[in-house]
């Protein structure tokens, strides 16, 4: 598998008096995968995300994105074009006076010609289903719509990677659903690599791979099905288990002889049924 990001021995602290908030992090991201980085608030996951597009430069270690080092000042703008980032607060990343101005902002920064901008603008807005709102002002939009505009602004730059830094945590359930569907489509149809920073394990079980952060350290890494075999650790670091796993654990405690493989509700229902018909 082609590696698109390589993080090695990364450590970071905000100032010399403070303790390290990221300690010796090593991992790689594969091209086209959906990677979730989970951990409770303050575990260092958002700081880590900001290292991946050079918003933060580590004191120790390196971050290599698509062959460029984030420490390379010459390449930093190219890295930021390759790695788009959707932040948490929908209001605080909306720069333009209207939807189309905001989507164009990134393209203007990268000096694209007006013809290309116009073309990509309408395509990006169609992709996030905001083409009806091109001229709308931000205060007339819902949180979910604003986040979709942010995604359009990134897509228009034709990046390789999109980082969702808790982008759904301030949205209502409907807005959350819209965003996840939009990003899933980008991952599936355009093979965009997705890195999702979240504390919502229900959302994270759908990813290809998970990284678990706690107190600035990367404590686990693996595929969802392997990672959720043992749940004690995840609970200990303050994460809420996905529903199917909670249900599986309770059913087992009540004497139903279930295995520890089911991760999705559908899987659990199927297993219950096989079990039941074989009894």
């Amino acid at each position: 598998m082609e590696k698109i990001i390589e993080v090695s021995d990364l450590s970071y602290r905000y100032s010399e008096e403070q303790p390290y908030v990221l300690k010796n992090i090593n991992f790689t991201v594969n091209k086209g995968e959906w990677l979730s980085i989970v951990g409770h608030n303050g575990s260092g996951k958002s700081t880590l995300a900001k290292c991946l597009n050079g918003l933060i430069l580590p004191q120790r270690g390196t971050v290599n994105v698509g062959g460029f080092m984030t420490s390379d000042e010459e390449k930093i703008w190219e890295i930021r074009r390759l790695v788009g980032m959707v932040f948490q607060n929908p209001d605080n990343q909306f720069v333009g006076a209207t939807v189309q101005d905001d989507v164009a902002f990134g393209m203007e920064n990268h000096g694209l010609s007006r013809e290309i901008m116009a073309e990509r603008l309408s395509e990006a807005l169609r992709l996030v289903r905001m083409d009806q709102f091109a001229k709308s002002e931000p205060h007339r939009l819902s949180g979910g719509q604003k986040q979709r505009v942010a995604i359009a602004g990134i897509v228009a730059l034709q990046p390789l990677i999109i980082i969702m830094d808790e982008s759904t945590s301030m949205l209502d359930p409907e807005g959350r659903k819209e965003i996840i569907q939009t990003v899933r489509a980008l991952n599936r149809d355009r093979h965009l690599t997705v890195i999702s920073i979240t504390h919502d394990l229900e959302e994270a079980i759908h990813s290809d791979r998970l990284l678990v952060m706690n107190d600035g350290e990367l404590i686990r890494e693996g595929k969802p099905h392997d990672l959720f075999k043992s749940t004690a650790l995840l609970r200990k670091i303050g994460l809420d288990l996905p529903f199917a796993i909670k249900m599986r654990n309770v059913l087992r405690a009540k004497g139903v002889p279930l295995s520890d493989t089911a991760l999705f509700q559908e899987e659990l229902v199927d297993e219950l049924w096989t079990l039941h018909s074989s009894m």
Partner: peptide
Amino acid sequence: KRAEDLAMAMEARGYHGDDGRTKLH
């Protein structure tokens, strides 16, 4: 807080002043 967030978001979206910038309008 907003200003800080916004500055971060603008930087992430490649804003680096007037240099080499184009305009939609």
